[in-house]
Design a protein around this nucleic acid. Structure first.
Lengths: 255, 255
DNA sequence: AACACTGTTTCAATTATTAAAACATAGTAT
DNA sequence: ATACTATGTTTTAATAATTGAAACAGTGTT
């Protein structure tokens, strides 16, 4: 039919409703009407009516003790029906858990979406010190191991993408030069794995490899990440092997 | 502030948007504009604009191959932030898995919500023949083991609730008489477990017990269910023990 | 007791939503 | 090939719903 990326906002109420839902986060689990209204720059009564409506629909739940609002179980219910990659997550889960058993470090499963990496799933490692990542969120391509893997294997025109995306500096290690990033992607294509050496957060190291389906198409990427203190050269080599082993297992479960 | 249950729909667009989202299910993962419009009795162009808007927000995703729509990853993202009972699910998970390891049959974790049982989580058993339940959905109180446990332990005024709810007949075994159900609830209160002997679906049997927190408040219920062929008297007794053991474990992890 | 802060309701002015019809495209059967 | 029927998409004036300021009603605090 039409281009998939040119859909426009045609109903402002619905847009506002999801703007409100986006105000909530892991830290801000409970918000008030006024608080939300200020945050999104909308009239208080508009926000109230939106919240009241979504409360009636179980999308939002008001805390009767203080009148503040939280995200409701309807969202939980709807998420269960999100078919895209749902099978993927559940099928990959045991292999991801096995990976964490072997490597000991937190593993992530991500896909390529809108020139970003999208975290689909996460299995936490056995150490106390852990990366604070969030399933369902996005990260830039240029400063993450998963992102660089995507550029190398899921994006046929990675040079064009690199020319167009913003190589924002996040840490002192972030690759911000197009030429350097293109070189790095070519190396990843050759060697089959990507590293993030504190390029996204100081102290955080990550190893990532692509996941191919039976037809050889890169459908996802998996990674192992943890503090730099636990990621020296030898360990990175071990983790790379662990990851490739798991990626190969995943290949076989997708016909 | 106000009564928590009297929130009204004050924005029809938002209501329509979620009505559209509710059209999707595990079976109907992909729907067209016209299809949805007919199902909810709304004009085609209204549905289109809603879908286009939600597509722009990643709530919906259009399949470029056939123009049809699916639920999008935004819902997945939002569900990760639903704080209510989120901790509960993840903390309870290993104990639920252990329960399934012992009993072998599918286990459910549910809460009491709006005079219904709300399925929070599920761990599938090891048999091929399995109950086809859906996380994030609701079931009536009167014809499920989980529901009857809720009436007995989570609802102080169960008699009043029973007087008010519709004891709809689902199977020939469904308890449809108020007096009989009240008797049954009293027995459950005494013995600490509920049975569903094909009262909700012929062939399906279920054993359920309450989960209390440290203060003794019933916060949830857990169950084991499977085909009647695998649930004779002895097995039911064993499963009841398994369930009570797990419920006791869960009690200790909630201060 | 007065104040400041919530969430909630009201109501006329405004604006966005609506529905029917036309359009464009794809697939199918004649 | 051609006509037919299905889809998703766009346009339009008519309409109905959203808006925002202000008042209201509670809470908790000073």
């Amino acid at each position: 039919m039409d281009n998939a990326e040119d859909k426009k906002i045609l109903n402002t109420s619905v847009e506002k409703a999801f703007k409100i839902l986006d105000c909530f986060s892991m830290e801000k689990i409970e918000l008030g009407v006024t608080e939300i209204a200020n945050q999104i720059g909308t009239n208080k009564s508009v926000v109230y009516r939106m919240l009241a409506t979504m409360d009636a629909l179980n999308v939002i739940q008001q805390n009767p003790e203080n009148g503040k609002y939280r995200l409701g179980l309807k969202l939980f219910e709807l998420s269960q029906k999100v078919s895209i990659h749902k099978n993927f997550i559940s099928k990959a889960k045991p292999y991801m858990e096995d990976l964490v058993k072997r490597a000991g470090e937190t593993a992530h499963l991500a896909i390529y979406k809108n020139q970003k990496v999208y975290f689909l799933d996460k299995v936490v490692g056995r150490h106390d010190l852990q990366i604070n990542s969030q399933i369902g969120t996005e990260k830039p391509l240029h400063c993450t191991g998963l992102g660089k893997v995507m550029l190398a294997f899921a994006e046929p025109h990675f040079e064009k993408v690199i020319d167009n995306i913003n190589l924002e500096r996040i840490t002192t290690n972030t690759i911000t030069q197009k030429i350097k990033l293109k070189q790095e992607i070519r190396r990843i294509k050759k060697e089959g794995f990507a590293l993030d050496l504190e390029e996204n957060e100081i102290g955080l190291v990550c190893v990532a490899v692509p996941v191919f389906d039976a037809k050889g198409k890169c459908i996802a990427a998996i990674s192992t990440s943890g503090p730099s203190a636990r990621f020296n050269k030898n360990e990175i080599q071990t983790y790379t092997g662990d990851l490739k082993y798991t990626a190969n297992q995943l290949k076989h479960i997708f016909s």
